[in-house]
Write a protein that binds this DNA or RNA. Structure first.
Lengths: 346, 346
DNA sequence: GTGAAAGCGCTAACAG
DNA sequence: CTGTTAGCGCTTTCAC
């Protein structure tokens, strides 16, 4: 990026200018104290090595380290120990971390929480174009990651390589065959929704689905919804969302047997549906009720929806990754419960 | 985290189970192809070394690498080359990446964009407690980072160490003495705001300020606001925000000479002020106008505010860091322009 | 208890 | 043009 559009730009060299001095190395520190590098290593990384260091030398080392402001070089350590304490996050669709798409934000926050708990760092990736075999940046990461949290709606070249790789991967939200997954109970959510709507007396349901989504999570929501509705003897019409939505919505609402409730596959879209409805002059829920799915706190406060613990989902994914780096078995599937959130729209 | 609250948890071992085989090393690949490691290194990292490799061997190497699915070990490379291509982001106050605080999200997106442009990765940190001399995780990062984008409102032990360290740091939004900074033109913003309000005929202004903020950016907004107002002969009362705000607001609005406009130091708070005003039965802007500052797209659509290019700010910060790792000089201060955004609240 | 030495996997000299 | 070699800074045997 050029800074040509900056209004002012003082060109005084920055204060913390490139200093030629390289950081203190462990060998130097050891020499300074008058002990061997191994002693320093043992003391500073308090490894559970059987080798013991006398309390006095230990103190000498600690003090010198503090005094000389010594910081061990993490990448050298990583190379030696063959792990980095870095967890990666990668998503293959949707906007990255955006206000309009709070979903990914929530996922990231959960990962951050998990990293904190497990003393890991988080390395984040932007969205990568799935262009053929062109190596996406993820491919460059051999050795850099202890594990990867993957958010991808459908298998592709990258996920395939990930399955075959020896990098520990946990997927969130959507399942990828061959990879352990943590997600929420979409089926329970749909059942809860249908039961609630049925008991409130709604009869003509429109299920609003995104045809571009291959998401296993979304598919489960829909099929479970239809099944439960059938169980209640409710008629459900499935509508595949189209763009722009307003004309379609207008036609639907103009029909004689127009729906008395529209169940949308996620909150964001539900929000847009409500806006479109309002724009067409319909009141929610007076003229037609609307429900969503996800319940990200704070994003669509009045929506009747399913609250799914997405932050916990990604937090759990990190925990699983941590377990796996300790060579422990991890479940191939973890499904977190959801609950009905009754708002004002249904 | 325990998974005791998970509804279902199949304990079948995960499919991509720990494989004992370690990734292919460069030496192995070289041996396989029948060339030297250096040849492989030169071909795969297409360094501008003077050493040339024949086209045929180059092809042989490339093909073998693809066939054997070889990925260079990034941490070994980093150790050797003394840089990692990782940029860190660290913030010392506020919520991390949250829907309620879209500011940090925007910053992160800008960094991500910058990283993409400069082929860097982003390593993210959670917020670290500023507890005395206890080493925060950032301290553990010697060698891991090529540079750091810092968002901190005031100097503290960590920023001090950063100033003294040889890690390239660029601060965003707020200045920290001794560190290069990129921010927006807060002073211009305030001037724009005041001019607009003055021309619209507002006369009794309440400037809503956050007393807990040491932010240099916020301080500039205020002082510039007051100065410009004085220039227009406008009376401005400064109110230090308190919690809860409603009672205070009620008293203010009950006064005879109550303000006809409240200028809040940032959009989020402006939003809360409007909510409180509504709760008290006042209409905006009929009873009282409100302005904000920041203009994060999409967060508070109707607000009259200053649009500041925060995403560009952090993007620029990354560009600066990239320049610095190429040993080029960078400006100690970069100030990006802002513009007035006229909404419905003033 | 301590210190020397062998790598982790890669890059960049340098001599063939 | 290719191969050998010497590290990057740290951890971890293994002798002493």
């Amino acid at each position: 990026m050029d800074n040509s559009n900056s209004l002012k730009s003082a060109s005084i060299p920055a204060d913390n200018a490139p200093s030629s001095e390289r950081p203190l190395t462990m060998a130097q520190l050891a020499k300074h104290v008058g002990v061997s590098a191994s002693a320093v290593s043992v003391v500073l990384s308090n490894t559970n090595s059987r080798i013991k260091v006398s309390e006095t030398t230990r103190q000498r080392i600690l003090e010198a380290a503090r005094e000389l402001n010594y910081r061990p070089n993490v990448v050298a350590r990583s190379l030696r120990k063959q792990h980095t304490n870095i967890i990666g996050f990668y998503k293959s669709y949707g906007e990255m971390i955006s206000i309009e798409y709070p979903f990914a934000s929530t996922l990231v926050r959960g990962i951050l929480a998990g990293c904190r708990e497990h003393k890991k760092d988080l390395l984040l990736y932007g969205q990568v174009e799935m262009s053929g075999d062109n190596a996406p940046s993820l491919e460059m990461l051999n050795g850099q990651l202890d594990g990867l949290v993957l958010y991808a709606s459908e298998p592709n070249a990258l996920t395939q390589r990930l399955v075959e790789s020896n990098l520990p991967v946990v997927t969130v939200a959507d399942e990828i065959t061959g990879l352990p997954c943590v997600t929420v109970d979409d089926e329970l959510g749909s059942r809860l929704l249908v039961r609630y709507l049925a008991e409130k007396g709604y009869r003509r349901i429109l299920y609003w689905f995104d045809p571009n989504q291959f998401s296993s999570s979304l598919v489960k929501r829909q099929s479970s919804y239809l099944k439960e509705a059938a169980h209640y003897g409710l008629k459900v019409e499935v509508f595949n969302e189209c763009d722009p939505m307003e004309p379609a919505l207008k036609m639907i609402m103009a029909r004689k047997d127009r729906p008395d409730v529209i169940s949308v596959y996620c909150d964001e879209e539900a929000h847009f549906v409500i806006q479109a409805l309002n724009a067409l002059g319909f009141q929610v829920p007076k003229d037609v009720a609307v429900t969503g799915f996800d319940g990200i706190p704070g994003s669509h406060p009045d929506l009747t929806t399913i609250r799914a613990p997405w932050k916990q989902v990604s937090h759990t994914a990190v925990s699983l990754l941590a377990q796996r780096s300790e060579k422990r078995m991890i479940p191939s599937q973890t499904i977190l419960p959801v609950e009905l959130l009754i708002g004002k729209t249904a």
